[in-house]
Design a protein around this nucleic acid. Sequence first.
DNA 1: CGGCTTCCGGCAACCGGTTGCAAAAATGTT
DNA 2: AACATTTTTGCAACCGGTTGCCGGAAGCCG
Lengths: 344, 344
Amino acid sequence: MGRAPTGRPTSFDIAYLAGVSQPTVSRALRGDKSVSEATRERIQRIARDINYTVDKNASSLRSQRTHTIALLFFEDGTDENLINPFFLAMLGSITRACANHGLDLLISFQRMEDDWHMRYQDAKRADGLILLGYGDYALYSARIEQLVEQGTHFARWGSIRSDRSGATVGSDNLGAGRTAGEHLLACGRRNIAFLGHADEHYPEFAHRYDGLCDALRDAGIAPDPALQFDALTHEDAGYRAASALIASGTPFDAIFAASDLIAIGAMRALAGAGRTIPGDVAVVGFDNIPAASLTTPPLTTIQQDLAGAGECLVETVLAQIEGRDPPERHLPTRLIVRGSSAPA
Amino acid sequence: MGRAPTGRPTSFDIAYLAGVSQPTVSRALRGDKSVSEATRERIQRIARDINYTVDKNASSLRSQRTHTIALLFFEDGTDENLINPFFLAMLGSITRACANHGLDLLISFQRMEDDWHMRYQDAKRADGLILLGYGDYALYSARIEQLVEQGTHFARWGSIRSDRSGATVGSDNLGAGRTAGEHLLACGRRNIAFLGHADEHYPEFAHRYDGLCDALRDAGIAPDPALQFDALTHEDAGYRAASALIASGTPFDAIFAASDLIAIGAMRALAGAGRTIPGDVAVVGFDNIPAASLTTPPLTTIQQDLAGAGECLVETVLAQIEGRDPPERHLPTRLIVRGSSAPA
DNA sequence: CGGCTTCCGGCAACCGGTTGCAAAAATGTT
DNA sequence: AACATTTTTGCAACCGGTTGCCGGAAGCCG
């Protein structure tokens, strides 16, 4: 039955050693129930003995399943070398989730211009995609539509309410914004500024702002558009936005920043302008990046459920692949109170 | 010549449309010079028109080249969810280097116990491996030997002088340690403590310590073993090591921490003990993680050439794969002076 | 004990490119 | 114009598992 083992072991070698046909080896190693317990164990033992590993390429080629998903990051392209720390934390979570599901993880950073929408699924590199990116959704929404059209399995991290096409997994930004607002109100603040884009191009930020506004209205305060300043998620953007806020002369006693990096930049601007934290201005950030606990004072912030996020993204993609029902894609957040916002 | 296009496009479809044989298509798309310019262009145009992508599995299966490398992280397993920020920065650099070389990058976090030494190369998932891990090298040196024996292409990040088997890429830790020492000496410090393991199980840290000792000796100071305290690279470890140092009663006016995380933990301990920085104690860290500039005072540290590191690791693996000469595997470092160490 | 279902395992086709070798075409030589 | 050379292209085998289908063996039943 075939030739004797030679070179790197293949399933044929095992078949030879076990005295069975090669397809039987394939079935046995995958735990196919149409192989008797006895032969399966025999085959598995031999496989272990000769250090056999299934060739992933051959397997994927025939079965059209790679058991791999691709994680595509993309940023606005401004910062070449720095990676947003929040993404990195997310990466850890996704990696672990993949490992738990026995999936390999392919990683790539993308520039907007690339033809990433076909590089992975089409080349059969991956069974599904996870898309991760802050920045202006409008810039790549066209590609996302394309993914949907061609039936690509994917999930993206974003704001749950912008779930028009494709499966979006995200934190409850609206609720988080409300929580932040209520916290600051409870601290006795009334004039709460928001640093971060609030238009539809940046739905995550916008929903955080919406939540803040909801909280304000509930407290009988009309949100003041003069207290909202655009900022992308960079420290410098936070610095500039806070400087603009200060320069505007509009009185304020609190800042809700759309991200910790923005908050950190804002704190720098406040310190430069002689405003004390939290005395003159309470500050709340978003993300709870590692650096948030190291600022002076430590930054109050909102923590997203990162462990849950990775698992949820992976599970969402898997569900599409296997035709199961997708999980709840709505993740809770938690307020972490630190020194930058004084308790009432 | 064959059947008409149907379903997802294959090279056969293109062959049909171009009126050539399928192997010619394969050759043309890879730029094989044995295809005439005219036909190649015709084929490439058709491929673009019908959105064709080479099936990576089929290609890899036959050619035995995946154009993929696997990046294996491993940590001591203590911290489940936090990833060392230094690694994350490295990841960014490696990702970019892979992209530049047209390689895919497979990522995995490993626990020591796993059979990672065969999961990738053997399964033909990747052409080569990059190993990244702080921690006790003794724990996995056996597996590394195994990799060498079976001819696996790999490079690991580590200390250049421990390059006994396999290609090790790393910073010039010895030189960096000397630089740190000389800087502290120039600041007028004489009793410089080192926080970090200094034994052969942690060669990177040990070489940093050795460099410090060299600098001390050059200045006519005998290194005092009582000023060296073990610490792995976690904030808590730094806190504990610094606490032990303070409790030991040995006088000291400077700390050189083997990593920024250790330094940050140490600064916390110093603050808790009422020692001022840099007044009583100057502190120098290592890595220049983002948080380093946010501490109070900002942390003087040593920056490794991360961009170069990723490129060098990738290039080293590629060189092995393609039988070229490996690049220089010795990377320079740079001292970043901040507030935690007072100028002389 | 013949007939029927169930369980196991084999046969052969197949996934979609890549590659060694040889034939055909184009170009050069004398 | 006949022959040597060099380019282009095709043929067929191959990479190493996976899968649909079928047949033999074993188990079940009246």
